[in-house]
Design a protein around this nucleic acid. Structure first.
Lengths: 235, 235
DNA sequence: AGGAATTTGTGCGTATGTATC
DNA sequence: AGATACATACGCACAAATTCC
């Protein structure tokens, strides 16, 4: 299979370019973009296409659009808050997020107990520890279907995974389903988390879809609901 | 303030009409809709407008669109699964959902400890018990800003709240933010829930946005994470 | 197996409505 | 009140995926 991601679509390219401009600081927080017609003319695209791209950014929380006013950069949607769609907060409020990569491996799905997702029989497993204000608070295990990504290594994965998907793999996560309950911490949990394996934790299972019909990603998160909470932003 | 909801927009009317047809059984599960161009001609609207309406249904999970194939009714997205965006599942899988209305009251926000939402100083409080396969499993408290709804009573509220918003209030929930942690069960919990007040439960706080800039709804859910899990579908 | 027909997706240009300043 | 700027709506052309003969 291995259908190559459609980086060919113009609105995707435009959206990625805009994001790049925001991230590189060319567009600062709160700044108003030029009018859509002006931007469209400058970029030599139609207003419709530009608007489609702007919609993507809006869904991602990086842009706030106001009729009659303008399109405003919401940098909080990206740098501070690298996990736009869902994130962990301390109960007292948001904190500065960081993530520490544990390992990246290419594995055969059937060798692990996994639900059905994707089309390949292999997947990349990414394990991370996430922290807020230097307090380690989430253990994360992500499975990305191989058909959506070739040659993922520890070097190539960046801090914001969905940004990595967009920029390196050409994948825009369009739909997600989270199942939240409780689950014992697995035994591969590193000591930094300051919880013991077997301890009951908040638990999130996630399926994520790109453009196709079936999920390309499956992931599991463990977090301590006594000190932090899970935030899902649906849009 | 009290800007009346824009039920005047053509794509909204079209979407509501389609939903009505699906819910009334005129369109059955799995059925393929006529081609977009045909439908558009019959309804005397442009394909663009129809497509915008179809997209809303797709986001709501009631429609599955396949390029080169057609638009298919996904009745699972509504009747069985009345709470499309987020729902409670038993750990063993989905069950048949029902809800029992406890009370509806119009209250002054400042008399209760509530976060900021909406523009009015009053809100309607809706309390419900939700069950799966006749097992009561969720206690629900919803606050809907008065500026978005006038004259809500126990008689007018229907089983699917967001359907009620759409059909009676002309509000399409476009964005939602959920905060999930744990919390003690409040003391107004009825005995049917079979948990004692003070018992630690799974806890979801939710803000919901319509078209405007600030949330029109705030709600709290308590659920037992030992027997059920919370599902959030982001799209 | 292969090619034509069907059907949705992308992209363009334009006109009008509506909220904001 | 007028200007500005995004939202809605229309019609068309071509691309891509699917279906069917």
């Amino acid at each position: 299979m291995s259908t190559q991601p459609n980086t060919t679509h113009k609105y995707m390219l435009v959206a990625k370019m805009l994001i790049k401009n925001i991230q590189s600081g060319q567009l600062v927080d709160g700044e108003r973009l030029p009018p859509e017609r002006v931007m469209a003319t400058e970029m030599e695209i139609s207003v419709t296409t530009l608007r489609k791209a702007l919609r993507l950014l809006e869904d991602d929380g990086m842009l706030i659009r106001r009729q009659g006013s303008g399109n405003y950069v919401n940098a909080r949607g990206d740098p501070q808050n690298r996990y736009a769609l869902f994130r962990i907060e301390k109960l007292s409020g948001p904190g500065h997020p960081k993530s520490q990569l544990l390992d990246v491996e290419r594995l055969r799905k059937s060798d692990h107990q996994l639900p059905n997702f994707g089309t390949s029989d292999h997947a990349f497993r990414i394990r991370r520890l996430r922290s807020l204000d230097d307090m380690v608070c989430v253990l994360e295990e992500i499975w990305l279907d191989e058909d959506s990504a070739t040659n993922i290594t520890a070097d190539t994965v960046t801090e914001s995974l969905y940004q990595f998907y967009r920029e390196s793999l050409g994948i825009w996560i369009r739909r997600v389903e989270d199942r939240i309950s409780v689950s014992p911490l697995p035994d591969w949990c590193p000591a930094e988390l300051a919880c013991e394996p077997g301890q009951i934790m908040g638990f999130v299972e996630r399926f994520a879809w790109g453009n196709g019909q079936e999920p390309i990603e499956f992931s599991r998160n463990w977090f301590d609901p006594e000190t932090s909470r899970y935030v899902a932003r649906l849009s």
